[in-house]
Write a protein that binds this DNA or RNA. Structure first.
Lengths: 253, 253
DNA sequence: GCTTTACATTGACGTTACGTCAACGTTTAT
DNA sequence: ATAAACGTTGACGTAACGTCAATGTAAAGC
């Protein structure tokens, strides 16, 4: 079949200007021009335009498309397979966006909590990998994927009200811990109260409680600088004091 | 939380230039600027940027986005629901593209046939509706949706080789029919051979054969100008002659 | 305290992929 | 024969930033 500009444009769902532009930049030249200068496109050009539109759909700029399809090593079937892969990836990206918008709706309704980071997660999946490499990997290696995932999941699904409660309780832990620290006795009443509050506070993040895990976490507070820095912020030695109190509270070690 | 340009940019996966541009066009102004002229963004701006990116993702231009989100009647939750709908539609479009690329691969491998129109179908779903109104409706009304759909489906799934066979057989039908026409006898040997070839030819388009349908089609060849024009191309009266021969062949009417 | 490095600012010009005229010739339909 | 529809080549306009340049500010290391 042969087509004039407008016929092909209509067929492909583009404007004739687009075809003229593609001719201009040498991306898609007509099979021939007739006596009066009209552009005439043949079956080869039809297929090529289809390829171009696939690439365009994937956000590839025209200059790159040109280089790709004019390359001597260009294999159209292989290119189509790659298109397929890319489209599947694009669909996954869309799924993420859909999940994100649904989550945002729930958050706006106050039914769950959403961190600033989560708000943009779906928009930049490629950056997520980088962040995962930067921050996610080490902590996961140290304390296990499952624990971190579960904890994150639980936080994600907390309501705004629950999150505020947890935050308040967390502050109370710090306050009582500070008071207890002044007594110097991790087995004393105040220190044990702090340990108990800490257990309650954990309830907001862990789906089930065990003394072993609680004691393990207490040790982690001392070993990991990030946690240590948090608990030592008012007074150095607080992380160790909390650990000792929790060890006594749980009867471990 | 408060963010500087680069911090927010990193969070949202955009460049700082983008944020400066959004400030410039009044789409997203920072919460405040500090003493040294730095842009500082607060939680409200974070959420607004998220909304903006959702709209941008859907291909809405920034001027329109501005009008939408600054409108007094703007309801963010409702907007999010609309985003969701649009994204679902976008996913359907992607599904169509994926189906299209898979089909194109099969066609390139010579396993099925693909019309030029089909090659671009997925790229322009909105135009398809229009085409359907223009050409699809009338013929469907006349001969029934199902018949047309089934026939189209079968043609779509034909291999290149099958398509060529069908075309060749179609030409033979015309040739024998022309010879038979010269005898003037629709009940004669040649005319009946033409009717039989026509039945075989139909096998390429219909998924099952019936004498009634065959006779009905023969009548349609006379009634519909498009078919009549095709069979009358060599000699006028051919469509009627074929109908008569098929009526005798099928023993109908 | 000094310096390096990273990050901030405001212009201002460049780029991509066309849209949108204008001015003019060609083909098709009536 | 004439209008309507379609073709041509300029040429300028545009949206959404990218990419310098020139310059001021904050944080970190020594």
């Amino acid at each position: 079949m042969e087509y004039t500009v407008q016929q092909l444009a209509k067929l492909a769902g583009v404007t004739s200007r687009t075809l003229r532009y593609y001719d201009e930049i040498g991306l898609l030249k007509p099979a021939r021009v007739n006596a009066s200068g009209y552009r005439i496109y043949g079956p080869k050009e039809v297929d090529q335009l289809q390829q171009i539109l696939f690439y365009r759909e994937l956000g590839v700029d025209l200059e790159t498309i040109k280089q790709i399809i004019t390359s001597p090593s260009f294999d159209d079937v292989q290119a189509l397979r790659q298109h397929r892969e890319k489209l599947l990836a694009e669909r996954r990206r869309l799924e993420a966006l859909i999940a994100n918008v649904e989550k945002t709706i729930l958050a706006k309704e106050g039914r769950i909590m959403m961190s600033d980071k989560e708000k943009f997660e779906a928009f930049k999946q490629q950056l997520i990998d980088e962040n995962e490499r930067k921050y996610g990997k080490e902590i996961r290696e140290k304390y296990g994927d499952e624990q971190v995932n579960k904890s994150n999941e639980k936080v994600k699904n907390m309501t705004q009200a629950q999150y505020e409660e947890a935050t308040k309780l967390g502050e109370e832990v710090l306050r009582v811990l500070h008071e207890a620290f002044l007594t110097g006795d991790p087995a004393g009443e105040l220190a044990q109260k702090a340990a108990d509050l800490h257990r309650q506070w954990l309830g907001y993040f862990w789906d089930h409680y065990s003394k072993e895990a609680h004691a393990g976490l207490a040790q982690m507070y001392v070993d990991d600088e990030r946690f240590k820095a948090y608990y030592d912020q008012k007074q150095s030695g607080m992380a160790e004091f909390l650990r000792d109190a929790i060890f006594i509270y749980t009867g471990k070690k």
